[in-house]
Amino acid sequence: MKVEVDPRRRPTIIGLLVILAILAAAGPFLASNRYAIQVATLILLFAYLASGWNILSGYGGQFSFGHAAFFGLGAYTSTILFVKFGVSPWVGMLAAGLVSALLGLFIGLACFRSGLRGAYFALATLAFAEILRVIFVNWDWVGRSQGLLIQLVGDEPLLFQFTARLPYYYIALALLALVSGVALLLERLKLGYELRAIKSNEVAAAVLGVDVFRAKMWAMGLSAFFTGIGGTFYAQYLYYIEPFQVFGVGMSVDILLPAIIGGAGTVIGPIIGAAILVLLGEGTRTFFRGFAGADLMVFGVILVLVILFMPYGVMGLLGSAPKAKKESA
C-alpha cells in the first residue's frame, strides 16, 4: 500500500528556503570548531546524496540498492582526471556527473527494458556496484585496493582545494540547494507526476499513457548524475579514495538511509534524515568509544524500529499521511 503525501499540503518551498538560510548563516559559527564543521559538512553531503537517490527511488519507487556504483564512479572519474591528466576537479566534477549518468542509463536500459522491478531491481543495482568494486580493486592503473591519493597543492580554489574547512561546507550546501531545487521543480513537472504514478501503480500509469520506460530512464539519469557529482565532492574533501569505501554496500546504504528515515519522496525528508543519522552515528560512536561494533548494533536496532514504527519517515509523522496498517499475518 502506497501513501502519497500531497505536496500542496505543506509549504515545502518556504520550509526549504528557511532550512537553507539557517544552514548558510550557521556556517561561520560552525567553522570555529573543527569537529562541528566536519559533522555539519557530512550532514550536507549525505542530505545531498540521499536527495539524488530520492529522485529515482523516492519519487519513482525504483528502489536502488547500488547507488555506490554512481558515487564511486564519480569519485574515480574526477580523481583520475586530476591525478593522471591534471584536469581541474571542477571540470572533473561535471565529467563525473556525466559518466555516472551514462552508467545509470546503461543500468536503466538493462533493468527497465527487461521489466526488472522491486526486489529484482534492488539486487541488480547492488550487483552492478559490486562489479565496479571488483574491477577497481583489480585495476593496477588506479592503484588497485590501495586506491588513489589526491596530491595536496595548498589553497587553490581553481583546483577544488582549500586549507580551510568552511569552503567545503558551502560547496556542499550549494549542491544540496541545487538538488533540492531540482526535486522541488520535479514535483511540479510532468515527469514528477509520471514518476509518482509509476510508483503507486506502474501498470495503471502505462495504461493511462505514461511512457514508463522513458520516465524511469530520466529519473535514473538525473539520479546517477547528482550521485556522481557527490562522489567528486567526497574525493576532494578527503583527498583519498579506495574501492571498498566508495563502491561498498555500506556506501549504498548510507546514501539511501537519510531519505528513508526522513521520508522518501519528499524534498525536506532527506535533509532531516541526514541530520538525524549523522548526529546519531557520531553520538553512538563517541558514546561507545572503545567498544568496536556497539555503535553499529545500536544503529541496526534503530533502523528496524524506524521501519516498523514510522514507515514513512519523519515527514510521514509531520505530514498528515495516514499510518500504514502493520499487522502480522
Binding site: 527511488s57 522491486g118 544503529f299 499487522e327
Partner: peptide, 16 residues
C-alpha cells in the same frame, strides 16, 4: 511484522 510492508522496507529491516 513486515510481511505486508513494501519490499524495500523488508530489505531494510532484515539489513538492520
Amino acid at each position: 511484522r513486515i510481511l505486508d510492508a513494501p519490499e524495500h522496507d523488508q530489505l531494510l529491516v532484515t539489513l538492520g
